[in-house]
Design a protein around this nucleic acid. Structure first.
Length: 586
RNA sequence: GGAGCGGUAGUUCAGCUGGUUAGAAUACUGGCCUGUCACGCCAGGGGUCGCGGGUUCAAAUCCCGUCCGCUCCGCCA
């Protein structure tokens, strides 16, 4: 039908007769002349109808917003003074000669122009309307380009795109599974994959050597702004590779994507040890745009009278840190009280602070509810260690280490934005040398990354002292988001068995992962890989605030689709075939 | 599972210390207008104040419950 897209017309087309298709973005009816801003995915162009063309002028009078049109007209330069510099096609217009309404449209449920914003629930219910907005079209285009550059990069590096099943086996550990009932196996269920983890490892055992997939993953857990029940991973695995090689490939890929999509040159990613990240930022995914760092002061607090500080200072699982916020002394009492409530969400029982008004006048230059509990020389040493200067405020965290890390880590982020300390742009980093295991609830040993990760310790130590073992695992972090994580995998059956044993899942492992243990016996190459959250990457690269903004049809926080009204009840007949009876809720 | 915020016209919101006919902007409809571009001017239509219950002479407003949306904690190998 069309000869051109709306947004592509410019002065080079002047004099040409063009045929356009698109939606009426806005209509301005001046009685004797009617302007239509016509929109397609490339942009807007102004089409003018005047009474000289009687028939099409009459049709133009009946046109309304979001009508779908087919137009013929001649491109002409706009008159002096009629040029619109705010419009990409503002130097020209199309003088319409023919006009056909391909489809009328009801009044839109919300205005699609940039000057009105609808609530997210309305946008999601009418997502097909919301996606017409240029803003949304740009985001999805950016997403497509990111995926495209990713594919090309990986293919240039010898990676094959291989699909893996989405009907697979349930795994009780990790996230909750989405289950799919089997018609042919009464009472049995498939699970949708939380990731293609095992399949990609098996592909390495199959000699595929280098695999990638832009894979949909499913986790039935509660949602956040950066978590959807179904999400997309850039999933990568390679054989005969070192950790450094996987990291180099990934870093190269991200640099390439940022360069080609945003024309941004990312510097080499800093590499942080896990311990270092926790020590300096209280987080395993630190936002390095934020310059604030923790200062450990437990050693100074062991002898002080103040119980709030000396108890955690003397507790092996405790931690006492200071967090200096430059310029924070201007924060009002009300704001600081707000921070106290804020850190309480992470389990902190209070938030001590010292305002540094005039460091030269000693204690008199300080302002704090806790000064009376601390010896002068201890305070002086805290100021020295943190590098405090006039106008700063120093916050304190003293509790179990995990509470301090969570609470002050979150406060660090908050201060970064409230005080405008964070720099603009993109701050990626690697976090490496993760612990292999941690103590879960009831003291059970659980894998920090996953149970197929290669421990960086001999087999005996994995069994005898698992909590001391490190793993060949690495996360890539961007602006405080975990963008991806990977590891070298266990490629020897004995080691895999040892890890299962350390996790006290001997029998259980045989049943659930017997096929893997078997596969490891048939010649498994050393291998490793990584998976990156495509939705998060796109969110960060488009500067949006939730991955919902970069997913065409996302779910709400309660994991529902407002447009389709999914999930929904199904026929009894359908349930019967699946051998399922719905239990009455109490 | 828990906490907070929100739900009033198609939309975005105001009204919420209870008291005339629930209002603004925008959208929509009709009329006028030949150079606008968030066109302008005139007129008009438009409400289950999320839902259910309670208190009261009287509830958008107060109380209880419930549903929905968002943010967060838990959860997310």
């Amino acid at each position: 039908m069309r000869t051109h897209y709306c947004g592509t017309l410019d002065t080079s087309h002047v004099g040409e007769t063009v045929e356009l298709n698109g939606w009426v973005h806005r209509r301005r009816d001046h009685g004797g002349v009617i302007f239509l801003d016509v929109r397609d995915r490339t942009g807007l162009v102004q089409v003018v109808y005047d009474p000289d063309t009687v028939e099409s002028f009459a049709i133009a009078e009946t046109v309304r917003n979001e009508y779908v049109l087919r137009m013929t007209g001649r491109v002409r330069p706009r008159q002096e003074g009629a040029v619109n510099p705010n419009m990409a096609t503002g130097e020209i217009e199309v003088l319409g000669s023919a006009l056909e309404i391909l489809n009328a449209a009801r009044t839109p449920p919300f205005q699609l122009d940039e000057h009105a914003q609808a609530g997210e629930d309305v946008r999601l219910r009418f997502r097909y309307m919301d996606l017409r907005r240029p803003e949304m079209q740009e985001r999805l285009q950016t997403r497509a380009r990111i995926a495209s550059v990713t594919r090309r990069y990986l293919e240039d590096n010898g990676y094959w795109e291989i699909e893996t099943p989405t009907l697979t086996r349930a795994t009780p550990e990790g996230a909750r599974d989405y289950l799919v009932p089997s018609r042919t196996h009464p009472g049995e269920f498939f699970a949708l994959p939380q990731s293609p983890q095992l399949f990609k490892q098996l592909l390495m055992m199959s000699g595929m050597d280098r695999y990638y997939q832009i894979a949909r993953c499913y986790r039935d857990e509660d949602l956040r702004h950066d978590r959807q029940p179904e999400f997309t991973q850039i999933d990568i695995e390679a054989s005969f590779v070192s950790q450094q090689e996987v990291m180099d490939l990934t870093e190269g890929m991200l640099k390439c994507v940022f360069k080609e999509v945003l024309d941004v040159d990312l510097a080499d990613f800093p590499v942080l040890g896990y311990d270092e990240a926790m020590r300096d930022y209280g987080s395993d995914k630190p936002d390095l745009r934020n310059p604030l760092k923790f200062t450990d002061i437990a050693d100074l607090m062991k002898e002080v009278e103040f119980q709030v500080f000396n108890k955690p200072a003397n507790d092996p699982k405790g931690r006492v840190v200071a967090l200096r916020a430059p310029g924070g002394a201007k924060l009002s009492r009300k704001v600081i009280d707000g921070y106290t409530d804020f850190v309480a969400r992470y389990g902190a029982r209070g938030l001590a602070y010292i305002k540094v008004n005039d460091i030269a006048s000693g204690p008199d230059g300080l302002q704090s509810p806790i000064l009376k509990f601390l010896p002068e020389e201890v305070v002086a040493e805290v100021l020295a260690r943190t590098g405090a200067a006039d106008g700063d405020v120093i916050f304190f965290g003293a509790d179990q280490a995990n509470v301090v890390n969570d609470a002050l880590g979150a406060l660090r982020n908050q201060l970064g934005s409230d005080l405008g300390l964070s720099v603009e742009g993109f701050a990626p980093c690697w976090v490496v040398d993760w612990p292999m295991f941690e103590e879960g609830r009831d003291g059970v040993v659980v894998a920090v990354h996953h149970q197929f990760t290669q421990p960086s310790a001999p087999l005996e130590e994995v069994i005898s002292n698992p909590l001391s073992v490190r793993a060949a695992a690495y996360d890539v972090v961007l602006n405080g988001y975990e963008l991806g994580g990977g590891s070298l995998r266990i490629h020897r059956q004995e080691m895999q068995a040892a890890v299962f044993e350390a996790m006290s899942m001997g029998q259980e492992a045989e049943i659930k992962f017997g096929f893997l243990l078997d596969a490891l016996k048939y010649g498994c190459p050393p291998h490793g890989g990584i998976a990156l959250g495509l939705d998060r990457l796109v969110m960060l690269m488009t500067g949006t605030h939730a991955i919902r903004d970069v997913i065409a049809f996302p779910k709400t926080q309660s994991a529902a689709c407002l447009m389709m009204a999914a999930p929904s009840q199904v026929d009894d007949h359908q349930l019967r075939e699946l051998h399922i009876r719905v239990r009455a809720e109490h």
